[in-house]
Design a protein around this nucleic acid. Structure first.
Length: 878
RNA sequence: GCCGAUGUGGCGAAAUGGCAGACGCAACGGACUUAAAAUCCGUUGGGCUUAACCGCCCGUGCCGGUUCGAGUCCGGCCAUCGGCACCA
């Protein structure tokens, strides 16, 4: 069987150019003070979400985003930018550890092998990364600084006055451990028995672990938490000025889940205890005729009356036995028990019974709600189930009170003495004022966001730089970093919740009286700041040098420091004018990572966590900008040819290296970009790759022909000739279209235009070299290998990677004649050619004289004529 | 239920409110070839009409609106996908 004939020799020239780029450091981005640094060049930081190097190697999803950023990086270099385009490895994580448990091979070895494989594969696609900046989160020289940043967080608190993270030294209270941004707390955590570790809320999907899909149960444990909730408002406000997909901003906003309402205090009848509830509908308080506590609420034990105790205990047991999944699954049917005690409704002094029910969650608000069955679906369901009275207190527009039950929107208050007749917003204000006046309530804001559960019971992660003594934790000294994990033979989780590191008895012992923390950090820790490390990866004095950080992360002018998003939340500031000024100046002065492309799956994980760390480091004065990623784009998923998600199960997985073997890296890159819009989900098609490969082969044959001996040589059609007018026009039109499309990340249409260009030159007897050189530069970011080779074959000066991006001349694009569309009543009747810039009168006259127009108008009267110069004439007749 | 995205040929898709379907795939026809592959040239939304040319009608999920003119803007539905989900 003959070897499949290659349409052009990509198998030779692609490795050739990859070697040249490596050897000439073609894509090294110099830092300030480096010899080759050119201060006159503007910077551009274009970043990929660095991969977890799994054993399976690259799949076609990775290179989609990577190709997009590579095109932008190469394009920006040609436009004279100093481009930071780095790559690295997010290499701590469960798969390597689980593999280690199965095979006994140390995760370090697995990780090293996997990285080597990934790197080879990425290089084979021809990405223009600055490999001198490669980083690896499992490298002690890297995680030294992950640990160091953790200590910054540990040694900080959130000052509610300034709304900033500040060093713990500025705290004047008596128990600093209570207010640290990294703290230890006993909380009901997500415990995954199968994985033997706890997980963050963000890592639990439908009651199952995101990794592996194993069941997760609630279990109280002492764990490290990061106080991300303190930053909820700033994380929310910061989104406004970011150039991110709206859907992604919505995901984060949703996840943070801010709601404004009131906290109201209810006295417990016959005791001095009180219970606070949170509500967003304080205007409905007159309808509150019972109260519900979460079964885990700490006051339940105290408040339950003797005769109800057995019942209460039984219910609490039942609830505790349910997994999260069951608890939400059985959501339809309300359950609960009366605990015997009553509360007093502060507005009317009515005694209302207190229940516990699992539809109230301990984790949100105060773990207690006032039951307003008239205007809350869940409360209504509960009241109906247990035959509690239902009183309408908000009248729906156009409906009588009795039909307003179940009405959830804003209406008019009824059956509510203080606020009767008031529209909901006013009613809320008045009730709140009343509650405040009587000292039983205040305005309050609550979030769905929980503090970040930051410890894991794993081996393959960053150890905490923390020691324990007498039940108290303290930080390691900076000089003791990096703290490396102990060498372990047995990585298995203990199953008890005790971390594997606890098995290393020698390692744990810090001194005669102190022991090391044995938990490790979650996989997300390393990726929270890797984009900063890329700015200065070799620095062993600082996590990132000040000057490289200022240069690459954007702001070396004063304006940025003055216009950060901090100090006041937007919700407060919006009342004053300062917000408007700040808002516009932020927009005018973007910074940070200029373009960040990656999958949407990190919406409420990496992208939220990294923003949080960034803000802490910003507050502490280490960073130039309050936000890390100015512009973010999510690439769409690539499906299998059968339109299903690629998976082994369906046998529809495409291996990029197989594709490159047959069609070459350039064709692979171009096809991934030609498939459709970057952000869109789209199915793979081998036929499509073939089509793009044909296009590149046509580019090749435009300049090269095969001689008798089967060798490629320069085509004789190539000449130092002046391009014809038509050739010039198409060349300039292509420059314009490709330039605009790259800026808009519309790579599919850029490639279409280049296909049109090539089609126009195919079969030309004379192919002007100048037009070809221009074209090669345009195509270079997409297909860097073939264009580099052809550039050299054409004996062009220098390297193609060092050319400047062509400019187009608008004048060349101007036509002397234009086609005018003739419409009658909006329907196209004919097309005529007219001189450019014909007057409206000339166009109208030509239209009226046109035979097809006259036929279409017939005996009707012309009512109106719309003329769009150089475009169309529409005759309105009736 | 809430939030978000998407609906255009046989398929992937184009289209600053102004010629719907660019470009590519597939299909069909032709040239080259002993033949095939490769390559090049052409046709290709649906329908009606015509011997043929010509000519006409319909068409961007559905219904309505704004406009001289709507795939595009507005209102209301439907469907598919993604996220959140007893969040008070």
């Amino acid at each position: 069987m003959n070897e499949r004939r290659k349409p052009y020799p990509f198998d030779r020239l692609e490795p050739k150019w990859q070697t040249i780029w490596d050897e000439t450091r073609a894509f090294h981005a110099p830092n300030p003070r480096e010899e080759s640094f050119d201060p006159s060049k503007p910077k551009f930081y274009v970043l990929d979400m660095f991969p977890y190097p799994s054993g399976a190697g690259l799949h076609v999803g990775h290179p989609e985003g990577y190709t997009a950023t590579d095109i932008v990086a190469r394009y920006k270099r040609l436009r004279g930018f100093n481009v930071l385009h780095p790559m690295g490895w997010d290499a701590f994580g469960l798969p390597a550890e689980q593999y280690a448990i199965k095979t006994g091979q140390h995760p370090e070895i697995t990780t090293r092998d996997n990285i080597a494989k990934f790197k080879t594969q990425l290089k084979r696609i021809g990405f223009s990364y600055d490999w001198e900046r490669e980083i690896n989160t499992t490298d002690p020289a890297y995680y030294k600084w992950t640990q160091w940043i953790f200590l910054q967080i540990y040694n900080s608190w959130f000052n509610p006055e300034t709304k900033r993270a500040e060093p713990i030294s500025s705290y004047r209270g008596d128990d600093p451990d209570n207010i640290r941004l990294a703290y230890v707390a006993e909380v009901a955590v997500n415990w995954c028995p199968e994985l033997g570790t706890v997980l963050a809320n963000e890592e639990v999907i439908d009651g199952k672990s995101e990794v592996g899909g194993f069941p997760v149960v609630r279990r109280p444990m002492r764990q490290w938490m990061l106080r991300i909730t303190a930053f909820a408002d700033r994380l929310l406000d910061g989104l406004d000025d970011l150039d991110w997909p709206l859907s992604l901003k919505a995901l984060q906003r949703n996840w943070i889940g801010r709601s404004e309402g009131a906290e109201i205090e209810f006295q417990i009848d016959g005791t001095s205890d009180s219970i606070r509830v949170f509500t967003t509908r304080h205007d409905t308080i007159y309808g509150a005729n019972y109260m519900v506590l979460a079964p885990e609420h700490p006051l339940v034990d105290r408040l339950a009356t003797e005769d109800r105790r057995a019942e209460v205990a039984k219910y609490r047991e039942q609830v505790a036995a349910k997994s999260d999944l069951e608890r939400t699954d059985l959501a339809k049917d309300k359950t609960g028990v009366f605990i015997g005690a009553c509360a007093i409704n502060p507005v009317n002094q009515e005694k209302i019974p207190i229940w516990i029910a699992d539809y109230v969650l301990m984790g949100y608000g105060t773990g207690a709600v006032m039951g307003v069955p008239g205007h809350d679906e869940r409360d209504l369901e509960f009241a109906r189930k247990f035959n509690l009275t239902v009183l309408p207190v908000v009248q729906a527009p156009g409906k009588p009170p009795e039909e307003s039950i179940g009405f959830l929107e804003d209406g008019v208050a009824i059956n509510s003495p203080i606020i009767n007749g008031l529209a909901t917003p006013e009613a809320k204000k008045k009730i709140l004022a009343w509650l405040e006046e009587h000292g039983v309530g205040r305005a309050d804001v609550r979030y769905k966001l929980r503090d970040w559960l930051f410890s894991r019971q794993r081996y393959w992660g960053e150890p905490f730089p923390i020691v324990w003594e007498d039940g108290k934790h303290s930080a390691l000294k900076e000089t003791e970093l990096p703290l490396e994990p102990p060498p372990l033979e047995d990585f298995k989780p203990t199953g008890t919740g005790e971390p594997p590191l606890a098995k290393a008895k020698d390692w744990i012992r810090y001194s005669d009286t102190a022991t090391r923390e044995t938990n490790t950090m979650p996989q997300w820790a390393g990726s929270c700041w890797y984009y900063l490390r890329f700015c200065d990866p070799g620095n062993d004095k600082r996590f990132v040098g000040e000057e490289p950080e200022r240069y690459w992360m954007g702001a070396d002018n004063d304006e940025a420091r003055m216009t950060n998003d901090e100090g006041m939340t937007k919700h407060e500031a919006v009342a004053g004018s300062s917000f408007v000024i700040r808002h516009s100046s932020l927009r005018a002065n973007p910074g940070g990572v200029d373009l960040y492309i990656g999958g949407v799956e990190h919406a409420v994980l990496h992208l939220l966590y990294a923003r949080f760390w960034h803000k802490v480091l910003f507050d502490l004065g280490y960073l130039s900008k309050p936000e890390p990623f100015q512009r973010l784009v999510n690439q769409g998923m690539i499906l299998g040819e059968d339109n299903r998600k690629m998976s082994k199960r369906w046998g529809n997985v495409i291996d990029p290296l197989d594709v490159i073997e047959i069609y070459g890296a350039d064709a692979f890159r171009c096809y991934e970009m030609f498939m459709g819009p970057l952000e869109q989900m789209k199915p793979w098609s081998m036929k499509g790759v073939e089509g793009v490969s044909r296009f590149l082969a046509r580019v090749w044959r435009l300049m090269m022909t095969e001689n008798q001996a089967g060798e490629w040589e320069l085509s004789t059609a190539l000449q130092d000739a002046e391009p014809t007018k038509a050739q010039q026009k198409i060349t300039h039109a292509t420059i314009k279209k490709v330039t605009d499309d790259i800026e808009a990340l519309a790579f599919n249409t850029a490639i279409s235009q280049m296909m049109i260009f090539v089609n126009a030159f195919t079969n030309s007897e004379v192919v002007p070299v100048s037009a070809m050189r221009t074209f090669l530069v345009l195509l270079n970011p997409f297909a860097p290998h073939i264009t580099s080779e052809l550039w050299q074959q054409l004996k062009s000066p220098g390297e193609i990677t060092q050319q400047s991006w062509p400019a187009y001349d608008e004048a060349v694009l101007v036509e002397d004649e234009v086609e005018i569309v003739l419409q009658v009543n909006g329907k196209v009747r004919d097309r005529i050619t007219m001189p450019l810039d014909s007057t409206s009168e000339q166009l109208e006259a030509a239209a009226r004289a046109n035979e097809k127009v006259r036929n279409a108008v017939g005996s009707q009267t012309i009512r109106k004529v719309v003329v769009v110069p150089n475009k169309l004439v529409n005759i309105v007749a009736a």
